[in-house]
Write a protein that binds this DNA or RNA. Structure first.
Lengths: 210, 210
DNA sequence: TTGTTTAAATTAAACGTTTGTTTAACTTTG
DNA sequence: CAAAGTTAAACAAACGTTTAATTTAAACAA
């Protein structure tokens, strides 16, 4: 765990925001320095290079993701469906709370060339799959969940739906009743709507009830 | 409908591939010129600028998307579920056949700044939603589909799942039985697997059968 | 409290590349 | 011969990074 000072955190925060909006190559270190109100040289001074800064942004969020996963493993008292529900709730919550970072991840995972970041992304995704799979297969063995479910693709469906909704927000928001909603209340509305949709979807495919 | 000569089509094709792999800003016009085996100046000569080239790539694919949508509207003899099934089949097929372009679209829709391309993306997506919604709502009115379905999010789920599987392919492929599969047969395998998963998902949430 | 020392922080300027685009000369084609 | 196609070279601007000078801050001895 690395501890950054205020200025370093400001740079990381601004970089995350700008990388998300304009992409890594679409953002210059001068842009970052200007918005973060620091000298251009400070970025090289603190992080070494622009690439290393991106890595810092990733490590900063990924460590939290790792902790997030381990935290989810517990609670064996819940029923399989309850476990899936809390899993959905927490993923939706987490991903809507770090939308900028999710944008960057969405972009980076498309890159053809392999990189340390590339590996990190797929390692974490693999760990999340390793978390979800036993919940489902155990419930299948116990006769609680239906068989014939493609767990990998179900995971993909969850991530894909949340990822897809992030850039689509401004379209949803054009509905007249949502237009003059506070930013925070809209996020809450979206969180609930996403969560409800995914739970219905998962319940329908996993159990045969509604 | 614009007609391009061979050289222009080569540039568009190479640009699509490289933009998909490395992003728009991550690809230089020199890269494109080199791979397409044309002089750098020809890109400006034919398309005006790098931005216009991206627009050309988009128009080239988007016109096909428009035609694709209009083609789907027909066939009123099918049951609602059959309509949804063919919709899924054809979307999966289409998107897996133009993966490079889907990568570019995935990237571009994340951009903060609005652009002609941005508008085009969301216009087409809106048209696709306008195609799916009546199928579902009509079936709901007829009592065939269950109510309480978030059509917008169901659409998002379909697009999100397919979009998400494109960069995740090389992970799925690490399974021993898929490792030494022909590229084309793997694509066929993936097409079937995706299609099956989405149909099960949609059938489960729309009807209450399995 | 002083003055001195030392390392970290900060800055403006300059560095060499690479960028997208244009030029002007040349070749091909109809 | 005129228009379109093609080329290597040159363009200014922007890029990420480094330099060298300066300021700040903390530590230490008198």
């Amino acid at each position: 765990m690395e501890d950054y000072n205020e200025k370093q955190l400001a740079i990381i925060s601004v970089a995350e925001k700008l990388f998300a909006e304009k992409g890594f190559h679409g953002t210059s270190v001068r842009d970052i320095a200007q918005v973060a109100e620091v000298n251009i040289a400070m970025i090289s001074y603190y992080f070494g290079s622009k690439d290393k800064l991106l890595e810092a942004v990733f490590r900063h969020r990924m460590e939290a993701s790792r902790a997030f996963i381990n935290e989810l493993v517990q609670n064996d008292t819940m029923s399989p469906l309850e476990k899936i529900y809390t899993l959905i709730d927490r993923f939706v919550n987490k991903m809507l709370n770090e939308q900028s970072f999710q944008c960057i991840m969405n972009r980076e995972q498309l890159n053809g060339e392999k990189s340390p970041i590339h590996n990190l992304i797929w390692t974490v995704k693999g760990e999340m799959l390793g978390l979800m799979r036993p919940i489902i297969t155990n419930a299948q063995d116990a006769g609680i969940f239906h068989t014939g479910i493609d767990v990998e693709l179900l995971m993909t469906t969850m991530f894909g739906t949340i990822h897809q909704i992030i850039p689509a927000q401004h379209i949803l928001r054009k509905e007249p009743e949502l237009k003059n909603m506070n930013d925070e209340t809209f996020k809450e509305y979206l969180r609930l709507r996403l969560s409800t949709h995914l739970k219905k979807l998962f319940k329908a495919i996993l159990t045969h009830e509604f």
